[in-house]
Design a protein around this nucleic acid. Sequence first.
DNA 1: CGCATGTTATTGACACTGTCAATTAACAAT
DNA 2: ATTGTTAATTGACAGTGTCAATAACATGCG
Lengths: 201, 201
Amino acid sequence: MPPELTPEIIAEKRKNLILNAIGILEDEGIDALTLRHLAVVSDVSRSTPYLYFKDKAALTDAIRIHSLHDLSARCKQAITGTGMHVEQMRLLGDTLISFGLRHPELYQLIFVVGLTGREKSKEFCKAIDQYKKIIEAPMLAAYVDGMISLPPERLNPVLWAAIHGMLMLNNAGLTGDDASFVQLRSDIEQVLAMGFVVTKP
Amino acid sequence: MPPELTPEIIAEKRKNLILNAIGILEDEGIDALTLRHLAVVSDVSRSTPYLYFKDKAALTDAIRIHSLHDLSARCKQAITGTGMHVEQMRLLGDTLISFGLRHPELYQLIFVVGLTGREKSKEFCKAIDQYKKIIEAPMLAAYVDGMISLPPERLNPVLWAAIHGMLMLNNAGLTGDDASFVQLRSDIEQVLAMGFVVTKP
DNA sequence: CGCATGTTATTGACACTGTCAATTAACAAT
DNA sequence: ATTGTTAATTGACAGTGTCAATAACATGCG
């Protein structure tokens, strides 16, 4: 008979590898994220990760999914405490921007598909859908309240693109110094708001 | 004495390697862009590229710079023929979007610094500055004409972030099908325009 | 013409990486 | 204690970036 390896234990070991991989990514950069290095850091043998991940792309995919769930949780928490829909929208934007600024390497790994592996996995798409659902809820409420002029399925891509672009440019060092980024952030907020927020008559 | 290798010939061989590298990138993807493969395609020996590029990062940097010059040239050409500044702004946006859609791998290599190598080179920064200067010229003209409400150094980052984000999301397959992208593109244009275009009184 | 010289290009070699087959170690049930 | 199944390790191989050692080679001088 096999040793007692419950699915829970397997899942825990898997999660441990994922967390160690994220640690490497954030501390030493994407180039240091190698399966062998992960094995050393995790104090396991060279090919043990292959027991939990089919290949390297599967590992990075798992990192993406884990991090998306984490981000979703942060978003949920960010909007508890206020019921004002437009305020919630701002809080969600802040959460994403803050995440992108604090975890640049991780952010890039998550959202720049094609950095590793070409096509999105089923689970990744599910995690994205979950995240989008959380984001779009306050937007839907604000829309039915008549506060904004575009429905969520049209407004969210606009806001997402603006924030994503700002973060990616900043990540690439193309937004100048910190002051420039702050200015950009405020300008984007203002320009966008003027573009879709319904002004009271 | 050395063999007759004029700087022109050296530059030509170098450019040839760059063009071949771009060909590999666009035809076979970023993973196929390897120095050894480039050598085979270019019909030279394994380490000949090292005579022209210090290391792989120098090669990708050269690709970036070459492509930025190419993009700048396209932009210059796009706005010849009309003197209407706001129309020129639209044409420049179309040029960038069209470039990003037609050359996704190349676009990502250029603008996602950190994909290869960590810090920007001097020459890359110069090419970026050149490009920005071309982009911002019509915006400055439109600003002094009173057509738009933000000066170029503030408006350009906003527009750039929006377009960059849209292209990167699309590149990652996060903008849905083609129809969704078209919708997003038009929504962004509209929302942004409402945010900064001065409406005639 | 033949040789020295400095330059260009190729090959050899090394450390890494992803990956998997072959092998060993661990352990529950008998 | 034996055994059979499974977890985990080691061996091995093809690629990759990189550079030192080597060859090829056009030119200038004797």
